[in-house]
Amino acid sequence: MIGIIGYGSYLPRYRIKVESIAKEWGSDPESIKRGLKLFEKTVPGLDEDTITIAVQASKYAVKRAGINPEEIGAVYIGSESHPYAVKPSGTVLIEALGIGNDVHVASYEFACKAGTEAMFVAYCLVKANEVKYALAIGADTSQGAPGDALEYSASAGGAAFIMGKENVVAEILFTNSFTSDTPDFWRREHEFYPRHAGRFTGEPAYFKHVVNAGKLLLEKSAMKPEDFDYAVFHMPNGKFPQMAAKKLGFTKEQIETGWIVPWMGNTYSGSSPTGLSAVLDVAKPGDKIFMVSFGSGAGSDGFVFKVTDKIVDVQDKAPKLRDMLDNNKIYLDYGEYAKFREKIILNE
């Protein structure tokens, strides 16, 4: 049996409400809340970045897995906000966790699905008996240009998953991917903020890839939507995953547990991974989970998980996603948010 043996997630404590952003740009917060189903989002602290988020999520994953970190043979961090353009984020993480030097490390990048790409490769390395354990992380401190629609959604957070063969808490039964050249969202070299193709990011990008990957995954697994207890989709806003679920035949109840975006925002590479983490926090042995990510550019990765009896032994060993989402929040006004996100140019 191959799958997740430990998982962990991390969200910063800082939040900004949709109202605080809308007020600055003369927008109607009610129409954003109604249209995008977004209420507030996480904001990274001045001392937080993809690396610190990945480290904290991974520490929780190690705690749940109960393994010696030195036995981890591969570390892949998927993000579109790696702190360095040249220097893998995982190099810092392996030192912070005490993994040692006998380890493969790389940074992954594929817009919002870099985290699930890392999960796929980590799973395959364990399956191929190349490493005993592999750590995959999806984490981001995503950027949205001031005044852009992305400012309401781009948030911070991440989740980490350790793949292994023993004491598996969620077996990976099937995986797939669906990819095409679709320039719906991009950031050119040296540009500070990403750009997007407006409404084109919907049907030709998000829905085309999520729905096709989802259909192919159902075919490959010979399973039907009603065979699943939970479904998790990439969450660029609150509305898209609900619509994708409906198109594929999943119910609102199936996506409810992992649908954390209205209060978290879009954590990009951490989006569907944190949704999965929220599901694993409450899942019961035997539950089946359907997950499809989406990364602009564009592609989707699909996973079918089957939760094992071991899940109940690990759920309480580290903080749960919903607890981090609902508690200990520190709200920022737009000025503080602009400072935290370094949107204000300071003197050297």
Partner: peptide, 10 residues
């Protein structure tokens, strides 16, 4: 906790 302490310039 593990955090960024500072940057060595820009």
């Amino acid at each position: 906790i593990f955090r960024k302490i500072r940057d060595e310039g820009v």
